[in-house]
């Protein structure tokens, strides 16, 4: 695979536009200024004049290094929430070999960086998913697979499946297809890596900033987020 050492400017721009779409529904004014601040452009510029950096820019440079490491070592959580998980083994194993991108499966949410929401989410899963998401250590990223995470997909009229996932947890990237082929999955991950490298995958900051809003939505759908894991006799 061709390594994208230099991110092409037009590609970055394209993704940024896509990203803004997914958060367009959010009530305005809830973002702090810093979250939406794109520093993709500055990062590319700062390579040329690296000597005279202000402290802020220097911090940014450190941040971009951090982003490089975050982007190239994505550990994903093995949590198959729905159908799309069936193509993940294909993407993980010999033919497509996700490990080339530095990605690998991890056993617990504490260790993981990305949460793959592979398809539809029933209410029962959503409750556990919120727990899992909140357990992951930051920075963390969420990828939604297929139309079910966007608008319910084929289960839009089901009594058990939620319709719009970004109401409950922030999504950094969607991958299209029902189910996405491994090529699409790999391509999506490459896009996510690019997003992280330029610092655009800020869903987790959004979750901090609009925590009340997310919690409100979660409660509306779930009644209570609490899991009563009683041992059913």
């Amino acid at each position: 695979m061709a390594k994208k050492a230099n991110i092409k400017k037009d590609k970055v721009k394209k993704i940024v536009i896509d990203k803004s779409k997914s958060i367009i529904d959010a009530p305005s004014g809830m973002f702090s200024d810093k979250i939406n601040e794109p520093f993709a452009h500055e990062m590319i510029v700062s390579k040329d004049r690296s000597e005279n950096l202000t402290p802020k820019q220097r911090k940014r440079k450190w941040k971009s290094m951090a982003n490089y490491f975050s982007a190239n070592s994505l550990w994903m959580l093995m949590y198959c929430t729905g159908c799309c998980a069936i193509e993940l083994p294909q993407a993980m194993t010999s033919r497509y070999d996700m490990e080339r991108l530095g990605m690998g499966p991890m056993a617990t949410p504490r260790q993981a960086d990305i949460l793959l929401i592979t398809g539809y989410l029933s209410l029962k899963t959503l409750r556990r998913l919120i727990y899992t998401y909140e357990q992951m250590s930051e920075p963390k990223y969420v990828v939604g697979f297929g139309p079910c995470t966007l608008n319910g997909g084929i289960y839009h009229d089901s009594h058990a499946v939620i319709n719009q996932l970004d109401q409950y947890v922030p999504i950094d990237l969607y991958i299209a297809g029902c189910m996405p082929k491994p090529e699409a999955v790999m391509n999506g991950f490459q896009d996510l890596i690019d997003l992280i490298e330029v610092g655009e995958a800020t869903g987790w900051k959004d979750y901090h900033a609009r925590y009340e809003w997310y919690k409100q939505n979660q409660k509306e759908a779930l009644g209570e987020v609490m899991i009563h894991d009683e041992f059913h006799e």
Binding site: K124, A160, F231
Partner: peptide
């Protein structure tokens, strides 16, 4: 031990 199913319940039969 008990299995706790239903995390993939989509209401197929209803749909």
């Amino acid at each position: 031990s008990r299995l706790v199913p239903g995390m993939l319940h989509r209401g197929f039969e209803k749909s």
